[in-house]
Design a protein around this nucleic acid. Structure first.
Length: 420
RNA sequence: GCGAUCGUAGCUCAGUUGGUUAGAGCGCCGGUUUGUGGUACCGGAGGUCGGGGGUUCAAGACCCCUCGAUCGCCCCA
C-alpha cells in the first residue's frame, strides 16, 4: 500500500490532533505574554548565507561541519537552514539599521533545522519560540527577559517541576581565568576522566562540567567555581541580576556548573530544566551574548536572549482537546441534504462553529453527529412525506443557543413537543 | 558517527518450540430493526506480515543485509 509512497524525511514530523492543539496553545500563549512585555514581532528568513551561522561559532568543528543543514544554491553560494534564531536576528539588526531602535525587544517563533539523530524531544526540523533584547547592557534587561520566561511557563501551567537554573560566566577576563583554572584542575585528574571528557579537555573544557559520566561527576564536584575568578565588575553585574529577580519574584537556583559552549557568551546563563523529558531536560535556555554581533562585523552590542522548544513545551502542557463543535446538523434523509447545508452555512455566518453530517448511510448520520458531541444536535429528516426537524440541546449549553435557535426557527418549523 | 529495542490490516495488537487458505477489537463502507435514536444484529472492503537475500520439505516466526521508528551516547547554537 504505502510501498510506493515517499516517506517523510528522518527527524521531521507531522503534527496533528491533540499534539497540534498543544503546539498551538504554546504559540498562542507565547504571543500573548510577549505582548504583555512589549516585545515586537519579527520574521526572518529560514535560510541565510552559511557564514551568518558559522562565524559566531568560531572553530567549533562538530557543530559547523556536522550539525548544520548546509547546501549550495545554483550560484554556488553556501546557504544554511537556520539552526537557531539569534544569528539571523543579529544579521537583520545590522543590515536593516535596527540599531536606531535599541534597546530593541524582539520576539519570534518558527522552524529551525539541525542535522541530528532524532530522539525524545529532538528533531531535525523543530520549532522554537524566541525572545531577545538587543543593544541593552544593563542587568535589568536580563531580569525582564527572565521574568517573561518565568511568566510564560506559569501561564502554560508547567512551572511545577520546572526550575530555573542560573549562573554567570563573567566577563571575558573572569571567564578566561576560570577556564585556565579548570584546565589545570582537570589535567591533574586526567587519567580518572572518561574518554569523552579527556577529549573535551582539549576541545571544550567547560563542557566537562555537565558530563553525564558518574566518574566525571565526582571529579567535577571538586572543580574550581567561577565565583573565585569573577572581576568586581562581573560580580556586581550578577548581583544586580539576582537582586532584580528577587524583586520581580522570580524563583531560581544557582547552578555554578551551568556553562555555554561558545565564546560570545558573557555574564548571565540560564536554563529552565525538568526531569520529565528524558535526556532532554532543558525546556528553555538562554543567556547574554555581548560578543556575538561583533563577530558579524557589527559594533559592540550587548544583548540577551532565550529560546524554547515548542515540541518540548507541548509535551509538558498535556492534553489539549480540540474545541467542541457548537452545532452538528445531521441530514437523515438525502432529500434534506440541501436544507442541512443551507442551515450549516447560516450558522457559520453567525460565527458559530458547525459541522454537517450528510454523507454515508443516511441511517447512520445521526449517530455520527451524536459522536461528535456537539452543543446542539439538529436533525433534518422526512417522515410520512413531510419535512421534520429536531433541535436537541446538550449540556453544557453553547453560548448564543437561543439566538441560533430563533434563527433556525425563522426558516424551519419545529413542533412544540420536539423543541428544546 | 555509535549503541539498545522494535517494525503483522487505517489504528491498537494476537499469532504456541517454524507446519496447511494470516486473526481479533476499534474504525471505515453497505444493509437490517419503519425507527426521537450514541451502546443491537448481518455483511463488506482493506495485509505480497517494512524491503532484499539465505537456511528448511515448510518462515510472519531462524540467520545476514538494508530501510524506518523509538530511546540513549556524542553534540547541543
Amino acid at each position: 500500500m504505502a510501498n510506493n509512497t515517499p516517506q517523510a524525511v528522518r527527524g521531521t514530523q507531522d503534527i496533528f490532533g491533540a499534539d497540534a492543539e498543544a503546539f498551538a496553545f504554546v504559540v498562542e500563549t507565547f504571543e500573548r505574554v510577549r505582548k504583555l512585555y512589549r516585545f515586537r514581532r519579527a520574521e526572518m528568513p529560514v535560510f541565510e548565507k552559511t557564514e551568518v551561522f558559522s562565524r559566531p561559532l568560531g572553530e567549533t568543528t562538530d557543530v559547523v561541519s556536522k550539525e548544520m543543514y548546509s547546501f549550495e544554491d545554483r550560484g554556488g553560494e553556501s546557504l544554511t537552514l537556520r539552526p537557531e534564531f539569534t544569528a539571523g536576528i543579529a544579521r537583520a539588526y545590522l543590515t536593516n539599521g535596527w540599531q536606531q531602535h535599541a534597546p530593541l525587544k524582539l520576539a519570534t517563533h518558527g522552524p529551525l533545522f539541525r542535522y541530528e539523530r532524532p530522539q525524545k524531544g529532538r528533531y531535525r526540523q523543530f520549532h522554537q519560540i524566541n525572545a531577545e533584547i538587543l543593544g541593552a547592557g544593563e542587568p535589568q534587561a536580563d531580569v525582564e527577559l527572565l521574568a517573561m520566561a518565568d511568566q510564560l511557563l506559569k501561564e502554560l501551567g508547567i512551572d511545577d517541576g520546572v526550575t530555573l537554573q542560573l549562573n554567570t560566566l563573567g566577563d571575558p577576563e573572569s571567564r578566561e581565568a576560570w577556564r585556565a583554572a579548570l584546565v589545570e584542575y582537570f589535567s591533574g585528574h586526567k587519567d580518572a576522566l572518561s574518554e569523552d571528557s579527556q577529549e573535551r579537555l582539549v576541545k571544550n573544557p567547560l563542557r566537562i562540567l555537565d558530563s553525564k559520566d558518574r566518574g566525571d561527576m565526582a571529579i567535577v564536584a571538586g572543580a574550581p567555581a567561577i565565583d573565585d575568578f569573577l572581576t568586581d565588575e562581573a560580580r556586581d553585574f550578577f548581583a544586580a541580576v539576582t537582586s532584580g529577580l528577587d524583586a520581580a519574584g522570580v524563583q531560581y537556583e544557582r547552578n555554578p556548573r551551568l556553562v555555554r559552549g561558545f565564546d560570545y557568551y558573557r555574564h548571565t546563563a540560564f536554563e529552565f530544566v525538568t526531569d520529565r523529558l528524558g535526556a532532554q531536560g532543558t525546556v528553555l535556555g538562554g543567556g547574554r551574548y555581548d560578543g556575538l554581533i561583533e563577530t558579524l562585523g557589527g559594533p559592540h552590542t550587548p544583548s540577551v536572549g532565550w529560546a524554547a522548544g515548542i515540541e518540548r513545551l507541548a509535551m509538558l502542557v498535556g492534553e489539549k482537546g480540540e474545541s467542541r463543535v457548537e452545532i452538528a446538523i445531521a441530514a437523515e434523509s438525502r432529500d434534506r441534504e440541501a436544507d442541512a447545508a443551507s442551515a450549516v452555512a447560516m450558522f457559520r455566518r453567525m460565527g458559530i462553529s458547525t459541522e454537517l453530517f450528510a454523507s454515508g448511510s443516511p441511517r447512520k448520520r445521526y449517530d455520527k453527529a451524536r459522536k461528535a458531541e456537539p452543543g446542539v444536535l439538529v436533525s433534518m429528516d422526512v417522515r410520512d412525506g413531510k419535512d421534520v426537524q429536531n433541535w436537541l440541546v446538550t449540556l453544557p449549553e453553547i453560548d448564543r443557543q437561543e439566538e441560533a435557535f430563533q434563527a433556525f426557527l425563522a426558516r424551519w418549523d419545529i413542533p412544540d413537543d420536539n423543541s428544546l
